[in-house]
């Protein structure tokens, strides 16, 4: 478990980092928190020619709030997010999910950008980004672009981010203050802090009468990327929600959830197990979200 040889550069600015990446001709890797990359280097599963260290770039760290979105810079540590009042207030789903991301020791180093760029299909941060319609900002040495989370993830550990691009920030759109919003996050893993076998995130908006006006439901660990369960979202929006109809709506929804899922079987669980608990976890997340949203109705 000693890495293959590589060069190392410490980038001092976003521009410098992107320049190094461009010079790396596709063989460079970005070192952020290193919580995934370092073990992969040690096991020689990753063999970059050059490691571009972005930990020294101050422009890549921080949480900013404007009128329309919360912008989180790529190198912001997960611990900082977890401790952030902005995240807690505006992005409670992210705050909930972060408690499942590794352990406090790994969160002290691990970054939001690193987690998104790594794109493990069972990891929590990509799931939340997808559920909250986040946009991901990528910088190239000469240009930059902003990609919706729905288009960002391509497959297991694969994203649209080119090897010469740097993930610089993620933008979470702000929910209108007057809506009644609730969120829920449930995850199943054998041990606390593991990658999820399955994780489910839900965000529900209710109107004054308690009818559902918007819903975002996303699942992780059930396909090569996190997925939005659009059929279920539609059903929630069209039916409206009341205490009486919730249970039956959920029961009806289970086949729809299961239908499109495409999880893998591995040593930790079969695909069938993942499918079954995906339904359960999605329903639990929705339930929590609705309960919370109802509580938010004055």
């Amino acid at each position: 478990m000693k890495s293959a040889p590589f060069d190392y550069v410490l980038a001092k600015s976003i521009y410098e980092a992107t320049r190094y990446l461009a010079e790396g001709e596709g063989e460079a890797a970005v070192l952020a928190g290193g919580q995934t990359l370092m073990p992969m280097l040690s096991m020689r599963m990753a063999r970059p020619s050059v490691l571009v260290d972005i930990n020294g770039i101050t422009d890549l760290s921080g949480i900013e709030e404007n009128n329309t979105a919360i912008e989180i810079k790529a190198c912001t540590r997960q611990t900082e997010l977890l401790n952030s009042p902005i995240v807690k207030y505006h992005l409670p789903l992210l705050a909930q999910a972060l408690t499942f991301v590794g352990h406090s020791q790994t969160r002290n180093r691990g970054t939001i950008g690193g987690s998104l760029a790594h794109a493990d299909p069972a990891s929590e941060i990509p799931l939340v980004a997808l559920a909250l319609d986040a946009e991901i900002c990528l910088s190239h040495v000469e240009s930059s672009r902003q990609i919706p989370a729905t288009e960002f993830f391509l497959g297991p550990m694969m994203t649209v981010c080119e090897p010469t691009e740097l993930l610089v920030s993620v933008h979470f759109p702000l929910t209108k203050k007057e809506s009644r919003v609730g969120t829920g996050f449930h995850e199943m893993s054998e041990r606390h802090g593991d990658f999820a076998l399955v994780a489910a995130a839900a965000k529900i908006e209710l109107d004054n009468k308690g009818s559902c006006i918007d819903a975002a439901i996303a699942l992780g660990g059930v396909d090569g990327t996190p997925v939005r369960v659009t059929a279920l979202e539609k059903k929630l929006r069209s039916n409206g929600i009341s205490d009486n109809t919730l249970e039956s709506a959920m029961e009806l929804a289970i086949p729809e959830i299961l239908e499109d899922l495409n999880p893998v079987s591995d040593q930790h669980a079969t695909a069938d197990y993942r499918k079954r608990i995906a339904a359960i976890l999605a329903l639990r997340a929705i339930n929590d979200a609705i309960t919370e949203a109802k509580g938010n109705i004055a």
Binding site: P39, R191, H192, G193, Q267
Partner: peptide
Amino acid sequence: FQYLPDGQFLNATFADYLMPSAYE
């Protein structure tokens, strides 16, 4: 420790060999 029927060994890391932590 898990093996496939062909003898491939599946879990030599703490990501795959599930040793409990203080949480468990």
